[in-house]
Design a protein around this nucleic acid. Structure first.
Lengths: 115, 115
DNA sequence: GCTTATGCATCGGGTGTCGATGTATACTCT
DNA sequence: AGAGTATACATCGACACCCGATGCATAAGC
């Protein structure tokens, strides 16, 4: 089956979080880093990443900085203050989501007698 | 923001798991049960639920059983053997997904020196 | 008799993602 | 010199999943 479906809506959180943690990264680096860090469990497709990066810049969550390294073009991204706040909030939202999911998927709910 | 986006791709897992746990339920009951169990954090829209139930039946993961209670029509669903296996697998997949997410979202990864 | 709750259902549209495709430069191997 | 691979950007068509609106029908409450 496809685990992929679950990652839907997570990409933005991942990108913001990684950039918040690591200061600045460029697109290709993001794909490689995530692939390595998850042992291939999560791979960011370029078709999803680049449009997202553009959108995040347009929304003021990221800033871009062009560069040229070893003759190759790069675009370094880093989070804005707003982006950093968004990252934190989305990580929190993810934790809440997991919590909710566990409540639903739990084998048996505890008796809701008292508070 | 919308926490809703995260639940994408989770609905099938939720439905299968609940039915595997509780034996049999009907559509409306599923929506109410999930709403109550999560204190409103997760609400299953009918526009998402009914097509899914039909699909799961078509795929052999669920069986249907028509009924009439208090003059009102109901359709009880219960998991097949295949559905039960799928439920277990999808819950496992969800746990793996969460695990992967934590690896990515973790503040700092441990040094990957030894096993 | 209107509204609310129960209970089923479909359908149009939006959104996020994949996969394919395209461009360009640098390195490696033969 | 030419082919293949890695690096690095980007777009675009198609698909899957879901929401919100809408519809039908019965029962209960006001």
């Amino acid at each position: 089956m496809d685990t992929t479906q679950l990652f839907r809506g997570t990409l933005q959180t991942v990108v913001l979080r990684l950039l918040a943690e690591r200061g600045r990264m460029y697109g290709y680096e993001l794909t490689q880093h995530v692939r390595d860090r998850t042992d291939g469990a999560l791979t960011i497709s370029e078709g999803a990443l680049y449009p997202l990066l553009h959108k995040l810049v347009a929304n003021g969550l990221l800033d871009v900085e062009g560069a040229r390294v070893n003759g190759r073009q790069r675009k370094y991204y880093h989070v804005t203050a707003e982006g950093r706040a968004a990252a934190a909030e989305q990580v929190r939202a993810f934790e809440a989501f997991v919590e909710t999911m566990r409540d639903v998927l739990a084998p048996a709910p505890p008796n809701p007698s008292a508070a």
